[in-house]
């Protein structure tokens, strides 16, 4: 019998070892940041390229983690393998709703986003049962924006939910342009511009129309652990994002040069995206209350947000 107890113990050890935590950020000046690509994440790239964090917090050890989707970032933060990441407001709210200990540290960007369809479709109402709508994933900002528009137009936020197809931005673009069953794509810069430049496709809904105003497309989020146990690093992170944003706004030409190298895109194209009329880089967080009220009403959230201040770190600007 003793033998079997030992075996059982070993199994428990193996199971728990698999979930054991990596060295935490507490004490030392280290930060683990999710690195993402795209025009909406431009300040992150600038921050990295210009070594702003290193400058603002000498001696810091930064580990840039490649992440390609919001769910993965959230899971990495739950597993304590990541301290900071960038995402849209709805996925952040879903994490908060499920008890994740994190808050928004900074706004990052607002970029053009919208629903592109074939020119034969002129409004949401014209999307039939057979039409498939590609979104990055359910619960993404694109999905919530679409639900907001459906709520306003038809009084039914779930009207198009059964027609969603989950595709990454590039796959979604390919699916739309190839003329298959995907007839609509809710996407953002730069895929939005590429699709609109293709004959036969047009935008029937913009993000701002759906939302009913302006909102932060991407925000920066950090764990409570980083904020509480490593205030120096947290402050440097926030400051660096701010400096990167200021740099892009003040020196778009130079910023485009840096980004064109990182993204392997023509400089002129990047510059056009950076300086587009509805692209804005700002640390001010916009739209949290509207998103959270809508998601609560439609059942995507269970918790009610009394005051945006409770999910935003102090000293971070917000407006609603």
């Amino acid at each position: 019998m003793k033998k079997y107890i030992i075996i059982l113990w070993l199994m428990v050890l193996v199971l728990t070892a698999g979930c054991a935590k990596t060295e935490t950020a507490g004490g030392q000046k280290t930060i683990r940041i999710a690195e993402q690509y795209g025009i909406a994440y431009a300040p992150v790239q600038i921050m990295k390229a210009q070594g702003l964090l290193e400058k603002n917090c000498p001696g810091i050890v930064i580990s840039w983690e490649q992440m390609n989707n919001t769910a993965a970032i959230r899971e990495a933060m739950v597993a304590d393998r990541l301290d900071a990441g960038f995402m849209a407001i709805p996925p952040f709210l879903i994490g908060w709703d499920n008890g994740m200990d994190w808050k928004i540290a900074t706004g990052l960007s607002s970029v053009p986003t919208g629903l592109v369809t074939k020119t034969s479709v002129n409004s949401l109402a014209e999307l039939g049962e057979k039409d498939r709508i590609a979104v990055p994933q359910p619960g993404s900002v694109q999905h919530i924006l679409l639900a907001m528009a459906c709520d306003r137009d038809f009084g039914n936020p779930q009207k198009l939910d059964n027609q969603l197809v989950t595709l990454s931005h590039p796959d979604g673009m390919n699916a739309l342009l190839s003329g298959g069953d995907v007839t609509a794509h809710f996407t953002a810069t730069p895929y939005l511009e590429k699709e609109l430049a293709t004959p036969g496709f047009h935008q029937i809904l913009s993000g701002n129309e759906a939302f009913g105003g302006e909102f932060s497309f991407i925000v920066g989020v950090t764990t409570k652990k980083l904020h509480d146990q490593n205030p120096e690093v947290y402050a440097a992170f926030n400051q660096s994002v701010g400096e990167a944003i200021t740099f892009i706004n003040d020196h778009p030409q130079e910023a485009a040069g840096i980004l064109s190298e990182a993204y392997d895109l023509p400089e002129a194209e990047v510059l056009a995206y950076l300086t587009a009329a509805d692209t804005e880089y700002s640390q001010t967080v916009k739209g949290i209350q509207t998103f959270s009220d809508f998601m609560l009403k439609t059942g995507y959230l269970k918790k009610s947000l009394e005051n945006p201040g409770t999910i935003i770190w102090e000293q971070t600007d917000y407006e609603d």
């Binding site: 590609a134 595709l167 298959g180 995907v182």
Partner: peptide
């Protein structure tokens, strides 16, 4: 496959 026969 997405390109050939769509996503259904």
């Amino acid at each position: 496959i997405i390109l050939w026969i769509g996503t259904g």
